[in-house]
Design a protein around this nucleic acid. Sequence first.
DNA 1: GATGAATGAGACTTCATTCAT
DNA 2: TATGAATGAAGTCTCATTCAT
Lengths: 208, 208, 208, 208
Amino acid sequence: MTSDQAVRSARRGQRDGLSRRSELLAIAARLFAARGYRQTTVRDIADEAGILSGSLYHHFSSKEAMLDEIMRAFMGDLLDRFRTIVDGDGTPSRKLDELIRSSFETIRTHRDEVALYQNESSLLLAPESGFQFVAESSREIERLWLQVLHSGQESGDFRSELDPGLMHRFIRDTVWQTVSWYRPRGRLKTSAIAEQYLTLLHGGLLNG
Amino acid sequence: MTSDQAVRSARRGQRDGLSRRSELLAIAARLFAARGYRQTTVRDIADEAGILSGSLYHHFSSKEAMLDEIMRAFMGDLLDRFRTIVDGDGTPSRKLDELIRSSFETIRTHRDEVALYQNESSLLLAPESGFQFVAESSREIERLWLQVLHSGQESGDFRSELDPGLMHRFIRDTVWQTVSWYRPRGRLKTSAIAEQYLTLLHGGLLNG
Amino acid sequence: MTSDQAVRSARRGQRDGLSRRSELLAIAARLFAARGYRQTTVRDIADEAGILSGSLYHHFSSKEAMLDEIMRAFMGDLLDRFRTIVDGDGTPSRKLDELIRSSFETIRTHRDEVALYQNESSLLLAPESGFQFVAESSREIERLWLQVLHSGQESGDFRSELDPGLMHRFIRDTVWQTVSWYRPRGRLKTSAIAEQYLTLLHGGLLNG
Amino acid sequence: MTSDQAVRSARRGQRDGLSRRSELLAIAARLFAARGYRQTTVRDIADEAGILSGSLYHHFSSKEAMLDEIMRAFMGDLLDRFRTIVDGDGTPSRKLDELIRSSFETIRTHRDEVALYQNESSLLLAPESGFQFVAESSREIERLWLQVLHSGQESGDFRSELDPGLMHRFIRDTVWQTVSWYRPRGRLKTSAIAEQYLTLLHGGLLNG
DNA sequence: GATGAATGAGACTTCATTCAT
DNA sequence: TATGAATGAAGTCTCATTCAT
């Protein structure tokens, strides 16, 4: 590639509408996750993007519209991945393991979005918030997990003295809360964390 | 006015002063927990208390001072309770159970404070925040829990293939996150939730 | 009155909640009428009042709320005055004259409000604007005027070849539009304008 | 490309250029009249034209330039029509009738422009506005109407107890304000409105 | 002629805090 | 202790306009 070509390519990259949007959304997601949605100012995002805050409104109609777009894509993806697992072959136990592994993997690949989902739940799940789709996706995801837990109890794989609703919450909270302390460059990879959690979940903490 | 009356009035003043403070702090804690610290305005608190927002500054020097007072009392209590358990008699397994039961009980008795601790961690744990005592108490609590987990592995009570640091985080996250969905008037009491969690934690999810 | 008393009175005047509100509303009405509602900035109003723009929100929840309060009081008064005339004794012709005289008098006493009503009608009468009460009062006022015009035709006072709906509009437009050129300190008093208009309206422009 | 083709293309370019300008001005006039000049954004106009807002600046140097062009053409036409009437043959009474009929006809044929003239007068007539030609035309029009009214009084056609200056304002306000409620597809044609107004104006409202 | 991106000024509004009374 | 008024900084958003491609 000649240096001319490089320059042109860089310019094209800059001028490409889709990639500019995505770029801005990625910046927004990162800041929203790091500082919180409300604590992140439109100017913070613009500063990171190297433009003035008003210029963001050329791309998005509001700060909330950015969060909407970020979460809509994320919740859709997440639901798809979970549905594929639950609708696939395998024992309930295997499916639950896959749901859990997939969740930890999501923490690795979509850390900002998971953090947003965890930290902004009061905003995202409020009935009047304009983010009803998040609550709907959440309910659908809960249905999928419960379906697996119920089948597992019916098949005898899972202990019957455990309340599936509570189990779902315990597992869900543990898995997603991981995002609050997981460090991408840290000692522990998400896969290792997942395996440790599965070990604990399968057989419990106690020996014998 | 007789001197008797003056004395009584002064005492009432003091007592009212104290109870007024507590009342205001309780209102603040409730709102902080329900809406988030930043989303709660000083005026929200004053409105609930039936006074004007400026009048709050006769009781507290700032909004942050209210949060400080709320959390300082809470973290102190919590640490004391945990220390009493860890320093007491019993096997590591029993101690862990008691730590967990005590935590769920705390969710019942100090719901707002637990919610605050969970939801405002980015504010409370930030090194420059002026809430260093929260981070310090948290570290001390973590030390206590890890001490129990390590003794449990050394005594052979707990399975050795599990990383104590991860176990601590898994347990802690599950227990405290309960506050986000626990409903005081709901079907499940915290004690029942605690026992279900202990059942899961002891023996795992799987049969056999 | 001692000068001390004068100072105290001035201060009380300043501190009196009701009069401060009225003062601010009068300033707002004047500016809204002079520059237009949208062209008047909140800061314009605050500047005239000698405070910062944010301080206005201590008194009113929004710029629109100021306009609302101004127009609500005005439309109520106007409707009352018209109703009293129409419900009183007298021939339709006398009643019409009184309606017209009362309108010109209103231009003198409530010039800003009339100007606002004339100039901001697209805002005030829009169905979705939050100013429905203006449209409602307007309809009620129209009903009153039409009632007088119809009775006048039935009694034979008014010429029957004239469409009362059109007459109402012609008279209304002429009367209220006066506000656009009437100058309080000018040669013509509103009463003189009213009498000239009544002379024209009664007998027409042409001789014989 | 043959030179023939080039010539045709150039002509089309010119013709298209001209009609495109007119098209854009018509859109602008419609929106300015409907929403108000300031409330209409450059983007509103561009949206209606199916282009981006920046592209409008290839046709006009500014938003104000569009309003200027719209009003310049209108005021010129209007003045011409009035001058023709006043400079023609006939009694003052006939001339006044023709001025009024012509005005109502103008409301039919140039509704947007009349509405603009009525609603944006504070902008158009302000001495510093850059629209001095509007004020000048207005003054010239006023002179023409007053000339007719004065001749009518001198000839004894018009009643002498009426102030010509006030009569002019009354008539002018009634006629032009019609644009605020006239509906092109409504029951009343402008010609019928004109005749009703002339009937009222000639002989007044009262019988006998 | 048109696009897509950006500018920059300025709008309305929020809110913790202060202070004279 | 409480009120009523105000401050001042900051936040989201709007919009006419510019300009390289």
